[in-house]
């Protein structure tokens, strides 16, 4: 990719121009011996692949790559910004590290709703980034979860109420005392094994008789 970045826009002029022109001078302060080196505006592009920066102790790029493998994404961005050698070393990882970060900026105003949904499904970091950028999404999820809990509770009450009516009907037919239950009893938690109090055949017969009764 070297050199491609600079074209086709005009390169920044390395010298100060007088008389209202664009004034940018590019200098490298990292030159040896502290002196400043005038650079030609292509800084950080012509670095050969996989070099190590001068460090003490000096490590080969493969070792740096291994160390960077343990870093979380935020620290990897810092590493990319530290020196051109490390930026080059992490070039292959760059899009995956940066994507969740830029989603935060893209999500609001640039991405359509369908695309936002797709991005939530990419991975955990993307999902988190979208939810941070659009807080209405986790809010809606919490509301929906709350509604589902209430819905399940209502369904459970209805099932319990039906079961008690069935049980009392069967008890009544057998001449046994009915089980009394008051308003609000249906809020009791369903007991395990309760369903087996009457077998399926008994319950089916009871329901059939219950349906026939008005016609008799």
């Amino acid at each position: 990719m070297e050199g491609e970045v600079a074209s086709p826009p005009p390169a920044i002029r390395p010298k100060l121009l007088g008389g209202g022109g664009f004034e940018v001078e590019v200098q490298v302060l990292r030159g040896g011996g502290g002196e400043e080196e005038v650079f030609d505006g292509k800084y950080a592009q012509n670095v050969s692949v996989y070099e190590s920066p001068r460090t003490e102790p000096m490590l080969v790029p493969e070792l740096w790559a291994q160390i960077f493998g343990y870093l979380p994404p935020d620290d990897l961005i810092t590493v990319i910004n530290t020196c051109p050698e490390w930026a080059k070393l992490l070039e292959a990882k760059r899009t995956s590290v940066l994507f969740p970060k830029i989603l935060k900026h893209c999500a609001l105003g640039y991405l359509g709703n369908e695309t936002v949904k797709v991005c939530r499904t990419l991975n955990k970091a993307c999902k988190e980034a979208i939810d941070l950028a659009i807080p209405e999404i986790p809010q809606m999820i919490r509301i929906r979860e709350g509604m589902e809990v209430h819905l399940r509770a209502i369904q459970a009450r209805i099932r319990l109420w039906m079961r008690r009516h069935l049980r009392n009907g069967l008890l009544r037919e057998q001449g046994l005392p009915e089980e009394g239950f008051r308003e609000g009893d249906e809020e009791e938690v369903e007991r395990p094994g309760q369903e087996n109090e009457f077998n399926a055949e008994q319950m089916r017969d009871f329901i059939l008789r219950k349906f026939r009764r008005p016609q008799e």
């Binding site: 004034e23 590019v26 302060l29 800084y43």
Partner: peptide, 15 residues
């Protein structure tokens, strides 16, 4: 204006 890796850019304040 100095970048994270130490390159200095001399820029007009207007820009």
């Amino acid at each position: 204006v100095i970048s994270s890796d130490g390159a200095a850019f001399l820029v007009s304040q207007r820009l």
